[in-house]
Design a protein around this nucleic acid. Sequence first.
DNA 1: ACCTGAACACCGTTCAAGT
DNA 2: ACCTGAACACCGTTCAAGT
Lengths: 193, 193
Amino acid sequence: MRMTNQKQTYHHGDLRNALLQAAWKIVEKEGLDKLSLRGVARETGVSQAAPYAHFKDKSSLLVEVAASGFTALKILLETQLKECDRSKDHREMLDKLGVIYVQFALDNRAVFRLMFSDVISDFPKSENYEIAAAAAFSCLERAILRITPQPFATFSAWSTVHGLASLIVDNRLEISGDVETYVREVTKFLKFD
Amino acid sequence: MRMTNQKQTYHHGDLRNALLQAAWKIVEKEGLDKLSLRGVARETGVSQAAPYAHFKDKSSLLVEVAASGFTALKILLETQLKECDRSKDHREMLDKLGVIYVQFALDNRAVFRLMFSDVISDFPKSENYEIAAAAAFSCLERAILRITPQPFATFSAWSTVHGLASLIVDNRLEISGDVETYVREVTKFLKFD
DNA sequence: ACCTGAACACCGTTCAAGT
DNA sequence: ACCTGAACACCGTTCAAGT
């Protein structure tokens, strides 16, 4: 099928990234269980065995997709964190980060699930993944530390926001109305003083 | 197993339940992604096509496994709820339910994941599933209502406990020490007054 | 009604071989 | 180094046929 205007070479050039993008796209469109490595290769216009030149196996590819998910989330959180830097209302900042977390989960349902999926959790994770995940978590941590130094405060905030996001994404909680008011109503019971 | 001594007959007798039990066992031992319908049939000593006499497809079987997971959790929660009925310390009761929730998740990692998995969430759920899930949720709700009538209090408590359970099960939070102290430390920031 | 065996269209993964 | 095509051992699901 080499008949488009682009000249098609035997070597793809950036197959690794093309595969990652295709995988993200398919996961979001079809769901994690519908994603096959062969399908990713097909979508990328490459043979079924080609991915193995760049990834050890299917799980390794998915781990990298999840890592880029954490990176995307981290960037969103960090942007908000910087915007709020001049403000003194630390609690408001935390709420805003919560809204971003939940909104990200809703905008990228399948990838969000993948980020915490057993495909990854029960697997030797990549360095990329661990770094990206830790970076996202650390944004929440920094915000909390401006409010309180209590040791479990970060876990508590993270649990609440993550739980809310998970329950919504997994259809156990129907949201009527916008995400923001929902997050605020739920997190208002968290009191760190 | 009432039929241990009986000779094998062409008809199994209670194949439906045998398949459900085998599925639970395999999921916990091998993980959700390793579970195949053919494997479940093999484990039960029956042909690959036999499950289709009792379940529409693989997902339908998994939905029922998840339903029995919710039922098991509900029973644990309800037992605790009754034990606490005479006590006046409603907050203590809530904490105990939280511990049970998280402990259940840890004792049945793979099934807990399955209960909220996309295999089920993006699927026409069965009546069994919806009833069992609602029953489990309602235990938390009843406990909360003794503390406060505020509308989002239940969601808040559920989110926190569910988030904590999920993060631990998905290996994003290492627990050092026992579950109980962990749950108490995290939920102590939830204040309903 | 309940179950089997063969069949079909898919997978993940490997490997010799091509560029 | 990067990619292909064929091959192998698995799946989920269907269906005619057996009990």
